[in-house]
Simulated scan of single mutants.
Amino acid sequence: MECLGCRIANGIEPNLNIVFENELITCVLDIAPFNEGHTLILPKKHYWDVDEMDPETAHAVMDASQKMSALLKGLYKPDGVRICADGGKFNDLKHYHMHVVPRYEGDGFTWSEPLHPDGAENRLSETGAKIRKALGEQ
Rank of each mutant, 00 (worst) to 15 (best):
K67C: 00
D51V: 09
G87E: 07
G11K: 09
F90C: 04
M68R: 06
T57Q: 01
I8L: 07
A134D: 07
N22P: 05
K89R: 14
N22I: 01
P43S: 06
A60S: 08
K89W: 13
I131K: 02
E113A: 13
T110I: 14
E52I: 03
K133D: 11
M98T: 12
C6D: 03
M98H: 05
C27F: 11
C27G: 00
P102R: 06
Y104G: 00
N122C: 06
E56W: 02
G119P: 04
F20D: 00
C3V: 01
L71E: 11
P33G: 02
L75S: 09
G136M: 08
G80Y: 07
H95I: 07
N17I: 12
L115W: 10
D92V: 12
Q138N: 12
R82P: 03
P43Y: 12
C27Y: 13
D63M: 02
P55H: 01
H116I: 12
F90S: 11
T39K: 04
E121V: 09
P114Y: 04
R132Y: 14
G37I: 02
G87R: 07
G74Y: 06
N17K: 15
Q138T: 12
D49A: 07
E126D: 14
K133C: 01
K130F: 10
V100S: 10
H38Q: 02
I131W: 05
L72F: 08
N122T: 07
A9H: 09
I31A: 02
V19E: 11
D118L: 13
P14M: 03
Q138E: 14
G5S: 03
A32E: 12
C3A: 04
A60N: 06
V81G: 07
N91P: 08
L16A: 09
T26H: 06
D51M: 10
K94A: 12
N10H: 09
I12W: 12
A129T: 10
N17R: 14
V28K: 08
V101S: 04
A129E: 14
D86T: 11
D118Q: 14
L72Q: 05
L24K: 14
A129S: 13
R82A: 15
V19I: 15
M53R: 00
R103D: 09
E36G: 04
D79P: 10
G136N: 14
G74P: 06
E52C: 01
A85T: 15
A64Q: 00
P114V: 03
Y96S: 02
R7Y: 08
L72C: 05
S125W: 10
E2A: 11
I83V: 15
W111E: 00
G108E: 03
E13G: 07
W48V: 09
L135Q: 10
M98A: 02
